[in-house]
């Protein structure tokens, strides 16, 4: 499935619009990572545990979006946007949305 955050694909016509598809995922980190992160809060620098966590979470959200698009019979998702929000302390929500279309 073609995923792009542009509105048009050069040289290809959109045959049908299906509207918005979306995927989201809320994850909390486990205690080990939390302790490491609070240590890092003293020294500063990259929190690798969190970077990985959010990446996994983002992959899952994109997976769900793709499944949804697949289910309604689209073959591409255009104009994809990401959004992150922290719901509670230690948990983050990743939200992905885009327009499902059929390209010729």
């Amino acid at each position: 499935m073609l995923i792009s955050n542009m509105e048009i694909i050069p040289g290809k016509q959109i045959q049908k619009h299906f509207g918005l598809v979306q995927g989201s995922s809320v994850r909390a980190k486990h205690v080990g990572r939390d302790i490491m992160a609070s240590l890092k809060n003293i020294f500063g620098g990259e929190l690798k545990g969190y970077t990985e966590l959010l990446q996994e979470s983002r992959d899952e959200a994109m997976d769900r979006m793709q499944q949804q698009a697949h289910a309604i019979g689209a073959n591409a998702i255009l104009n994809v946007r990401f959004s992150t929000s922290s719901v509670a302390q230690g948990a983050a929500e990743i939200y992905v949305y885009g327009t499902a279309v059929i390209l010729e």
Partner: peptide, 19 residues
């Protein structure tokens, strides 16, 4: 004009400030 193949690319990082 040109027909490119395309793909979504991502890069992310979490950085913390020191004490």
């Amino acid at each position: 004009g040109k027909q490119h193949d395309q793909c979504l690319v991502l890069g992310s990082v979490v950085i913390s400030v020191d004490y």
